[in-house]
């Protein structure tokens, strides 16, 4: 290769300790304070659901699936960047026609794991998780558990939505902190209307 791969980010992540050294205590303190208020407020309304569409159990399973599709390595993955937030939000918006596909597909997948692997997805070893999803993609899951959607239809839907969350604009709920653009070394948002690129 003629040049190195793009750096995983614009700069190293600032740890809390480093931030303390830089004298950012006040800023972080304010943020923590605001967060605490939110937490306290939520305690008073314990029944409030975490998600718009998913149950907690569905969401936890889906988060785990999305993380296999775009895993964290030296840069953030699907979980870090809010894939569940994107899918949950869009299922109550533009992608609402897929609600039942998710509901049925997640249940089929839950049962598939128990039947074919003898354990819930979340308890499988990393390699087994990938295998479980691979058999969905290839349509090798137990047919009795999959009708509408079929296993590949469900997998491909989750795949495309996970990609949308990771690469789409953060305004839709995913791609937190433009993580995918940092990964690729693309500046974003672009500053438009300026002649700042060298012309070809």
């Amino acid at each position: 290769m003629n040049d190195p791969l793009p750096a995983p980010g614009d700069g190293p992540a600032i740890s809390r300790r480093a931030a303390l050294k830089l004298g950012l205590v006040g800023v972080l303190g304010a943020a923590v304070g605001a967060g605490s208020t939110a937490v306290i407020a939520r305690l008073g309304r314990a029944a409030r659901p975490r998600y718009r569409f998913f149950t907690d159990a569905e969401a936890n399973l889906l988060i785990d699936i999305c993380e296999q599709i775009i895993p964290r390595d030296d840069v953030p993955g699907a979980t870090d960047t809010g894939a569940i937030n994107y899918i949950d939000r869009q299922l109550c918006g533009r992608l609402s026609r897929h609600q039942e596909t998710y509901r049925r597909g997640l249940e089929s997948f839950r049962q598939t794991c128990l039947q074919a692997r003898g354990a819930p997805f979340g308890e499988l070893a990393p390699a087994a998780k990938i295998e479980a999803l691979r058999s969905l993609e290839l349509g090798e899951a137990p047919r009795a558990l999959w009708g509408d959607p079929s296993a590949p239809e469900f997998f491909n839907l989750v795949l495309s939505h996970t990609m949308q969350s990771f690469y789409g604009s953060p305004r839709h709920g995913g791609n937190r902190d433009y993580a995918s653009y940092r990964m690729l070394g693309l500046d974003y948002p672009q500053v438009v209307g300026q002649n700042r690129y060298k012309k070809a």
Binding site: L5, I69, I70, D73, T162, S180, M183, L184
Partner: peptide, 16 residues
């Protein structure tokens, strides 16, 4: 492969 670690590696290696 269209997903997993291979997906990310491919994006980083070949997007540009």
């Amino acid at each position: 492969p269209s997903w997993g670690k291979a997906h990310k590696d491919f994006q980083r290696m070949f997007y540009k």
